[in-house]
Write a protein that binds this DNA or RNA. Structure first.
Lengths: 197, 197
DNA sequence: CCATATACGGAACAATGTTCCGTTTATCAA
DNA sequence: TTGATAAACGGAACATTGTTCCGTATATGG
């Protein structure tokens, strides 16, 4: 290959058109707003309308409805994961765990439809649980290990399993969700230090 | 009113036609089968087809899709409630509670879509949670009270709240669901006998 | 066996996800 | 600046599914 052709090895074949990027951003913004008010089941046309584009344009950027939902939720997951180390540095292990759990509950409760998408089983949403696990599992694992060491909770709890369970409980929303998650965490504490059956 | 008109006070105005009853039964049977294989989201036409009737007939008996779903699930709830007193008589309170919970988990897990319908929030499904609560709450309340008395679990747990939480966890299905519910029940045991803060 | 209320079947309608394609336009190079 | 062209756009059209409507068929009671 000639050096001229190779300049900027990636992004060689023409950069994305400005209107395309504009519309993609507008669609994400519109979708976030619509999902927040009407829920994730809102008609595609409503989102396209709010973004000021045709449905064809929407489908060019997000080949399936679910792709748009996934794109919107993806960016909401990071902030939650990043809070884990902060709380770990700020509180004793057991309390850091409790607090992050409540933080997580509030997050899932606020995003109506996240839990449903997560547990739908529909392969179209598969990238969402994948990202969810990849990002949140290490966060929770660190908290669990820190609390295991001094014997505050039972050892060997699987982080993914716990994460999924809590996200299910969280979908109830409100104080019920918070109480039930607290109860579940208390389950981790029950007979935590036992060595005999 | 004359005594002649009053004979058999209810069912006075012409008894239901035999074909109507036949079709209603057939629809329920078909729906149960279809729900079991294709899930509760299966098209109405599939159910009508399997029952050998037109969609008009289906809608005559079940004005909304959800009414059919509710009708199918309703009858599945009773058997579960009736097991509570049996287990209570057979095991010590704490174990009876654990065992019934697992029984309940298996029940909800088996009926894919029950949990979703239960927690959808759609007013069309309102009769379902209502029946669910009415039938299962007393069953669980008795188990809880029996286990509270000897101090095996913390007092004051709300049966409905617990029921809803467990049905959410149960929708995961499989061993994960069983483990998480067991963990939640252990939460009830954590510091059960404490009297000071 | 007739009259009639009841039930039936399926075409038609409405809402919504998705595809298609003729039209418009941003980008690049001359 | 301007023209060629690949890329993106818009929205009509299509497919699927819940629901309604109404002309037709039939079970029931006399």
């Amino acid at each position: 290959m000639s050096e001229g052709e190779n300049r900027q090895n990636e992004a060689l074949e023409r950069r994305v058109r400005a209107d395309a990027r504009r519309n993609l951003d507008g669609l994400l913004k519109a979708a976030m707003e619509v999902f927040a008010t009407s829920g994730v089941d809102a008609p595609v046309r409503e989102i396209a309308g709010k973004a000021g584009v045709g449905v064809g344009t929407l489908y060019r950027h997000f080949p399936q409805r679910s792709d748009l939902i996934v794109a919107v939720f993806r960016r909401e997951i990071d902030a939650c994961a990043d809070d884990a180390p902060v709380l770990a540095a700020q509180y004793p292990p057991g309390e850091a765990l409790s607090r992050w759990m409540q933080r997580f509950v509030d997050f899932v409760s606020a995003k109506r439809g996240l839990s449903a998408a997560l547990h739908s089983g529909d392969p179209a949403y598969e990238p969402l649980p994948a990202y969810f696990d990849q990002r949140l599992r290490p966060a929770l694992e660190n908290l669990l290990q820190a609390a295991e060491k001094p014997g505050e909770i039972r050892p060997g709890m699987d982080a993914i399993e716990l994460l999924h369970a809590v996200s299910r409980l969280a979908s109830a929303g409100g104080d019920d969700a918070r109480r039930m998650v607290a109860l579940l965490v208390d389950g981790l504490r029950y007979r935590a230090g036992d060595t005999q059956g």
